[in-house]
Design a protein around this nucleic acid. Structure first.
Ligand SMILES: [Mn+2]
Ligand SMILES: [Mn+2]
Ligand SMILES: [Zn+2]
Ligand SMILES: [Zn+2]
Lengths: 141, 141
DNA sequence: AACTACTTTATAATAGTTCTAAACTAAGTG
DNA sequence: CACTTAGTTTAGAACTATTATAAAGTAGTT
């Protein structure tokens, strides 16, 4: 890539160090995903719509899917599921927990939940991770 | 329904008391789902394939979807999600936890997990339920 | 500048699910 | 019992999220 202003350097490096060519599209998607203070939870379609809204030259659907998969494989995104039939992605790749509040997802830092009792893994298996979902509802009245 | 042998009475009553007409199809599906000792976790397509395999007169896809939705609305099934884009259903409608082992789902009774620390719900919200997923992997070697 | 492997793209294909509207049936009514 | 009707089943179309295809474009190398 010719045009490599400093603002993009960090994302170009991130892509390159993951074995991904820092194409125009990947750099823009990475910047959109990772250039924020708070965790971002999203579906590929949401990502596509919000990024393409402000663009004259649209990025194709396939590229959004390809890039999100590539970033997930590289360990920069985690996938998770809500109750519908859509994959969600999480820019917080650490092991952590969630509040689910009517489709809205909020991170809970790992150390905010600790266990008093946990079952052993079945024979021949071991625990890879433990993740908690706390479902919320509105207070009465 | 004319043919109401005693084996079916319990399922007919279950349907009727939920405001659902005990049709031939619904009774058979209910029997398949609920006439077992252990929790059953399934997708609608899996249910359809395993029930229709042994039938000459097949039950239609739409009826499987309709019936599963009706049973869910009546509170006889719970829906949950794995990492793919498919809805899973659970015949255990109590609040409980799961092991996920490469697509295999195993129930964990609620009292097998207790918490030492849990976050408060955000302002204006309250906790509806807390569910834990313990992901498993094979022991090394 | 020329080359090549990788990437993007438009488009088709697939999978799970929901919708539609016509045929069927459970269950009540006389 | 007929008769009626509201609820149900069904085949098939439609829809949505996602993946596959293969041609055109581009990053990185020489
Ligand atoms: Mn969505
Ligand atoms: Mn499946
Ligand atoms: Zn998160
Ligand atoms: Zn379960």
């Amino acid at each position: 890539m010719e045009k490599m202003n400093n603002k993009n350097k960090i994302f170009i490096d991130k892509l390159r160090s993951s074995g991904l060519r820092p194409t125009k599209q990947r750099v823009e998607i990475s910047k959109f995903l990772f250039n924020r203070k708070k965790t971002f939870h999203f579906t590929v379609e949401e990502l596509k719509n919000s990024m393409n809204l402000k663009r004259s030259k649209k990025i194709s659907t396939a590229t959004f899917y390809n890039t999100v998969h590539a970033l997930k494989s590289a360990g920069h995104l985690k996938e998770f599921s809500l109750e519908n039939n859509t994959s969600y992605y999480d820019t917080n790749i650490t092991s952590h927990h969630h509040f689910f509040d009517n489709g809205k997802v909020i991170d809970i830092k790992s150390d905010k939940i600790t266990f008093h009792k946990l079952p052993d893994a079945p024979k021949g298996k071991k625990i890879k991770n433990v993740e908690v979902v706390i479902r919320l509802e509105n207070n009465n009245q």
